[in-house]
Simulated assay, not measured.
Amino acid sequence: MGFLQKDKQKEDDSTDYIAATNTDVNSPLRQIAATKKKRYGAAVDGEFLFKEKDYADLIARECSIVTPNGELKWNATEPQPGKFTFESADAIANFCQKNNIALHGHTLFWHMGNPDWLPYPPTLEMIQRHVTGVMGHYRNSPVLKSWDIANEIIADNENETDDPTYGLRRGVKPELIRDLFKFAASVDPTKKFYLNDYGIEGATWRSSRFLKMVEYLKNSGAKIDGAGIQSHLWFSTAYGFDATGFSSVLKRLNDLGVKPVITELDIIIDTPLPDSIQKLDQMVADGYKRFLDICFAADVDTVITWGITDRHTWIRHPDWMPKKTYRDNPSVWQFLRPLPFDENLQPKLARNAIAQAFMQAP
């Protein structure tokens, strides 16, 4: 499937930033965000986007940017060595163009989402072929604006790395990531480049290594425009959120000239669980507002939730559902409500909290 012909009005990024008059908390999130020159978006799954009209209509109404869930990962785009396929990703790109939505490319390099034939880490030659094929295909796309060049390269913890300085996953060298970013810039320098990772929303071992890796890339002359902060968050009355540590991470990124971007936001409430769905929804909403207030104070301009409706959240998949809190307690499964809209695509308190955070942003 090819791209639609370019529409000059839709191609202009500024069209989404026209200050909308008469916006209120019930206006579409994309419209509220645009009044502050910001974007709201969500991860989308092509399988549901083209089967469920109500879901597609919700995405079109609320989002000014989307991230394909899996359609741009290596196993989807290069299932056999040197053989590329873009039918599913192109369908999402065409949906975006029809609805004046920007597309964020996710991802060129990851330890998961790979075909069986691909080693981790891939050789530089494999990476160059893949980047040439995938980035080259979208070089002239009117909607694809940015890429997660590398995703989750920091080890899960300090016991799973041989690299105490950068904390990279075993086998991954900082020079390989540097060369990946530099080669990507030789293929298409017109897009924004992100290093994307999780567990960096505070003063943690991972955030320290992530910041060192960002600094290394900057000092190496690599093109790195943004830092993708996934923000799969867990909140609980039993432990607090490290707001001070997170603010320091955002400040350091800004000081380095690397734009912090929220790429995969959702919120789980951990034990002790409240005694009602209503109380849980309020806790989730409070978490969104508190987190986004910190982000917007640091000039974050893009917020992407990992999904938009609880109907299609990855967190409800049995393989990913938090085991101790939820998988071992099926009676509380319904307390997994991490996204702005519920299973019936109705707005929740979380959706209103996101709207209020945008409206109150500097």
Rank of each mutant, 00 (worst) to 15 (best):
H130K: 10
I268N: 14
P79N: 09
M1Q: 09
E62F: 09
A357D: 01
N196F: 06
F181V: 01
I262D: 01
F335E: 08
A42D: 04
P274Q: 11
K37T: 15
F181N: 04
S64R: 03
P189G: 08
L103W: 08
V214C: 10
S207V: 06
L168G: 07
L58G: 02
R139H: 11
E201M: 06
Y326G: 07
T15L: 10
Y216P: 13
K348G: 08
E160H: 09
C96H: 07
T263W: 03
H317G: 00
T271F: 02
T165K: 14
K36G: 06
S27Y: 03
D179Y: 12
Y216I: 01
T244I: 15
G171V: 06
T190I: 00
A42K: 02
L292T: 01
V303N: 01
A222S: 14
H130M: 12
M321S: 04
N22I: 00
W110I: 01
T325Q: 12
P272V: 13
W147S: 02
A350R: 03
F181I: 04
S146H: 05
Q278Y: 10
K218Q: 13
A34M: 07
K259A: 12
W314D: 07
G307P: 03
L58V: 11
I65Y: 04
E264P: 08
Q346W: 05
T123K: 13
I32H: 03
E175M: 11
P164Y: 06
P121R: 14
T21W: 12
V258M: 03
F341N: 03
C295W: 05
M321G: 03
M1W: 14
G257K: 12
